[in-house]
Design a protein around this nucleic acid. Sequence first.
RNA 1: GCCUCGAUAGCUCAGCCCGGUAGAGCGAACGCCUCGUAAGCGUUAGGUCGCGGGAUCAAAUCCCGCUCGAGGCUCCA
Length: 619
Amino acid sequence: MQNMRILQLHCDYIEFSPVKKEIKSAEEIDPKPQHLDEVVVAFVAVEDGDNSEVAKKAMFEISESMKKVGCKKLLLYPYAHLSSKLASPSTALSLLREMEAKADGLEVHRAPFGWTKSYKVQVKGHPLAENSKTITAGEEKEATSEALKAESKIQSFWYIMTTDGKMHDVGSFNFAKHANLEVLAKYEAAKKRSVDEPPPHVKLMKKLAIADYEPASDAGNMRFFPNGRLIKSLIERYVTEKVVDYGGFEVETPIMYDSHHPSMESYFNRFPARQYNVNSEGKHLFLRFAACFGQFLMAKDFQMSYRNLPLRLYELTRYSFRREQSGELVGLRRLRAFTMPDCHAMCKDMEQAKEEFRKRFDLSREVITGLGLDESDFEMAIRFTEEFYNGNKPLIEELVSKIGKPVLVEMWKERFFYFVLKWEFNYIDNLGKASALSTDQIDVENGKRYNIEFIDESNRPQNPIILHNSPSGAVERVIYALLEKAAKDQKEGRKPGLPLWLAPTQVRVIPVKPEFLAHCEKIAEKLTESDVRADIDDKNESVGKSIRDAETEWIRYIIVIGEKEANASKISIRDRKTGGVRELSVDELIGEIKTETKGKPFIKMNMSRYISKRPQIMV
RNA sequence: GCCUCGAUAGCUCAGCCCGGUAGAGCGAACGCCUCGUAAGCGUUAGGUCGCGGGAUCAAAUCCCGCUCGAGGCUCCA
């Protein structure tokens, strides 16, 4: 293993003067003192075995971090003391010279090699001023560095597209009526992402006994309590029903794959990912981060004609895994194990792909609003290559016009990723963080990579164009968005809540005294028979306390049963939405609930009907 | 990977600066009250103060190391 070591300091100034030659092969220079202001100093130790690849990568990393601190002046300072297994002086000097030559766009200085030098620095006091790097070559990192090099070539141009199809410069666009879009634009284009408090949904997910961290697992692998499991099941079922209505065929594929399978190898070389690795019986397996792998490998083995296309394969992956960096994992926003509905459509040509793309755009909008998020809750971003845009303006303009508000545009000069067009809906949370929910892509590369073939009209084998759509985004992230939305309501003085069809308890029945429990039981049973989730507070606390408990659990309907109700057909129903009490019959209440949850799946209550029987999960 | 913060009862936290008997609220168990739309009352149980070391007569408290967690940065095909 070879590791070039670099200590990088952003300095107000540095002064150094060569004192005497330390080694015979020291550079011949004029040993006069030098002074540089506003400079990044990189102390570099070249280790035995470092090569040009390492030098190139080191220079790339240095210039990336210099961009961040906004400094263009660099001093490369040979500094042996960072390593105990130094390269030979001749190698070290030649690599340093290579680094000097590779520093495009930077003003580079280099302290002389092989001299004892005295120096004086004043280091700046900001968080990114000091930083150390170890640059590693070696096989596994090779792929990463290839991809990184390629990625550094991508040039993005950011615009705002208005509903009339006009492109506006991000910098001069008037965001006055589009505050969230401005947040997204800053987030994406300017990479401004600093906040200083935890997002509010973290407390809510615990308080409502939905989910919590599991310390015994890896970070980002959550436990879901009965309430959370119920909510997830409902969302999963809803999304699946919608995709099946659209024409998707549900399949199931393995969660782990051989990294050395040729298709995987080629994919990883281009798109290095952070994945979990599992070694078993000499096989190097990785856990899937999307359903692509399984579905592509499956489609490859289908015998297909153009008459079978578009072919829509759908899987609800529980789970997909991505080994996100630990610091990035927060609550339900980003996880390492997540549930992802993933629907691919194999299309015979670009015309068919575009037609299909439109359908899925409508499907995604329907799903996301059906889940309880309004179009005002998210902002759309659309990304494409310049070439695709020039050839397909009407399609892009149609999507933007459908969404009815301005959209963030990222345009690439040339295609780097496997797709030519991609859009996503981004939820903007209370701290101004953007997270992608629904997304769709037009993939022009993986059909070939995975040898997926169909026979066209002229009896020739072709690779399909593949669309990658998640109509809702990760299910956990949908819950995150719903909770953040509720937190926002709370912050702005409205009562927070979940959509009625997702509420773990839809109706709570409270007896005034224990002697009315039997009557409560009758009502709860009737509600249950009509597919309404109802439970009974049999704890024999004061009515006030029981109502308070129900309110803090965000239960929409509260029925109090006393003397009056026991002898009448109408019952007192407290509706959390209004805070008022109404007199309704049980049938009328059922009717109201059915109307509000129309078109949504139903699952029976996932806890004991009697709350005295329930373990206390979260206080 | 980097930075910061944290770890005390089932949960949320106080105590730590300035060393000297382990605290509160919520929750739980038990009992009383039998109650009409956001907290009725009482009693009891419950703690290797994350782990290891150091200095001290004495450590939850001071010092060092470690582990785990959280938040942020970076990154996020």
